[in-house]
């Protein structure tokens, strides 16, 4: 990934080098072989997520139909996901592939969202990298609990991706940088980059309302 990525020159506010580096690293992560999907498959997931978010009903022959359907739903209307659908997708492609797919779609939509809010053109997706998925096993602490997927404890958002530790770690890295760290969440009076906690949560709540996300 090069310094030429994520110039975000059209932004009405200055974009920090730290943010640009985070986005570039994430693009590198998306392009690389994952735990269960290859680099080309991961980029196909990313492309499909973008297309579906724009209202396209494209599918990609590189991906199983169940995966394409899951990407479409997750990118455009995540709140419409049902337990039956999740069970069917996991039956079709496996827990690890589903969790990794959730991570990829979420990361791409997040970075695209920030990019669009900054008034910038979307960054072209990277060229996929060769190599085989790691197939790291699901950690033993991951079990079927109250969610629709096997997860780690306690029941907090990052732990629903625990079946694929690499996906979980990427989610944590990105959300800590864009929002705040776990320890910081205990402080109702924290100010981050000039924005007070209550202002931060006002944005968070408004975004979640727009996505019809109850949690």
């Amino acid at each position: 990934m090069t310094n030429a990525m994520f110039t975000l020159e059209q932004s009405p506010v200055a974009v920090t080098p730290k943010l640009r580096r985070l986005f570039s690293r994430t693009w590198g992560h998306v392009a690389a072989p994952g735990t269960w999907w290859t680099g080309p498959e991961r980029i196909a997931i990313a492309h499909l997520a973008r297309a579906n978010r724009r209202g396209s009903d494209d599918r990609d022959p590189l991906l199983p139909a169940a995966a394409s359907d899951a990407v479409a739903r997750l990118a455009a209307t995540p709140a419409t996901t049902t337990q039956t659908q999740v069970g069917a997708v996991i039956d079709g492609i496996g827990l690890g592939r589903y969790v990794e797919l959730v991570g990829i779609v979420s990361e791409v939509v997040a970075i695209d969202t920030v990019t669009r809010l900054l008034g910038c053109d979307l960054e072209p997706l990277p060229t996929p990298l060769d190599g085989s998925p790691s197939r790291d096993p699901v950690p033993p602490a991951v079990k079927k609990r109250s969610a629709w997927v096997a997860m780690a404890s306690p029941p907090i958002p990052p732990n629903v991706l625990a079946a694929v530790p690499a996906a979980q770690q990427t989610m944590i890295e990105i959300t800590e940088a864009l929002y705040m760290t776990g320890p910081e969440m205990a402080d109702p009076d924290i100010t981050k980059d000039g924005l007070h906690r209550t202002q931060i949560e006002l944005v968070a709540t408004s975004t979640s309302l727009a996505n019809e996300c109850f949690y």
Binding site: V86, A147, V149, L161, N211, C213
Partner: peptide
């Protein structure tokens, strides 16, 4: 950035039924 973060959180929890 916060809006972007919650695009992740929203999707992760809705995709997994947390």
């Amino acid at each position: 950035c916060v809006a972007g973060a919650f695009e992740i959180y929203n999707r992760v929890v809705d995709a997994t039924g947390l």
